[in-house]
Simulated scan of single mutants.
Amino acid sequence: MKITIISVGKLKEKYWRAAIEEYQKRLSRYCSLTLLEVADEKCPDNAGEEDKNIIRRKEGERIKAKIPGDAHIVTMEIQGKEHDSLGFAQWLDRLPHEGHSHLVFIIGGSLGLTEELCRRSSLSLSFSRLTFPHQMMRVILLEQIYRAYRINRNEPYHK
């Protein structure tokens, strides 16, 4: 399985990069993983709704340019479908049997994703109703993908 994660914004802090590198290393035995970043737009504190829509559209265009043609798209959204770890693992395990060999997760910027990108996705996924920093969400997503592979292969992993 090929997995691509497209995220808005640069990962600046060393500790986030170290965590991501660790999960990249762990996942290398299970899948082909690609992490892509697109530039974020600065949002003024006093931005109105139209300004926010413009920002989302600009970031959305950058994301769309990175989506491969064979992608099974999953958008990460607060209002998305929630799974527990076992349900997520079962979903991930079914994808190849349903003809999907390239999974693309999209993590938007601080203002979220455009409606167009959300409609284009096959699944809107949420790991929590809580809001997480985008850097942390990348690590959580990678950890859950790793956990899913371990579950699907009946390999031990801490609970």
Results as ranks from 00 to 15, higher is better:
residue 139 V to W: 12
residue 102 H to D: 08
residue 130 L to W: 10
residue 37 E to P: 08
residue 89 A to C: 15
residue 142 L to A: 15
residue 90 Q to Y: 11
residue 85 S to Y: 11
residue 104 V to L: 03
residue 135 Q to I: 10
residue 29 R to T: 07
residue 136 M to K: 12
residue 7 S to W: 00
residue 150 R to Y: 03
residue 93 D to F: 04
residue 3 I to P: 00
residue 71 A to D: 11
residue 82 E to I: 15
residue 99 G to K: 06
residue 13 E to Q: 13
residue 39 A to Y: 07
residue 49 E to D: 15
residue 20 I to P: 01
residue 49 E to L: 12
residue 48 G to R: 15
residue 20 I to Q: 06
residue 20 I to R: 03
residue 122 S to D: 11
residue 149 Y to V: 13
residue 51 D to T: 13
residue 30 Y to F: 13
residue 145 I to M: 08
residue 31 C to L: 15
residue 57 R to N: 12
residue 144 Q to F: 14
residue 90 Q to M: 10
residue 123 L to N: 02
residue 18 A to I: 06
residue 46 N to E: 15
residue 23 Y to S: 04
residue 8 V to D: 11
residue 157 Y to K: 04
residue 85 S to H: 08
residue 152 N to L: 12
residue 62 R to M: 05
residue 126 S to I: 00
residue 48 G to F: 08
residue 95 L to F: 01
residue 75 T to I: 12
residue 103 L to Y: 07
residue 77 E to Y: 03
residue 109 G to T: 00
residue 132 F to M: 05
residue 12 K to A: 06
residue 21 E to F: 06
residue 10 K to F: 11
residue 144 Q to H: 08
residue 65 A to K: 11
residue 19 A to E: 09
residue 131 T to D: 09
residue 129 R to N: 13
residue 149 Y to K: 10
residue 3 I to Q: 02
residue 44 P to A: 15
residue 98 E to C: 10
residue 10 K to T: 07
residue 51 D to V: 10
residue 34 T to E: 05
residue 35 L to A: 04
residue 49 E to V: 14
residue 123 L to V: 03
residue 90 Q to G: 09
residue 90 Q to A: 14
residue 97 H to E: 11
residue 50 E to N: 14
residue 159 K to L: 14
residue 46 N to F: 12
residue 150 R to S: 03
residue 26 R to K: 07
residue 8 V to N: 10
residue 14 K to W: 07
residue 58 K to Y: 00
residue 94 R to K: 14
residue 22 E to Y: 01
residue 86 L to F: 14
residue 148 A to R: 04
residue 148 A to H: 10
residue 111 L to Q: 09
residue 126 S to Y: 01
residue 110 S to N: 11
residue 145 I to R: 03
residue 5 I to N: 03
residue 95 L to N: 02
residue 121 S to M: 12
residue 14 K to H: 09
residue 124 S to Y: 00
residue 56 R to L: 13
residue 4 T to E: 08
residue 41 E to I: 04
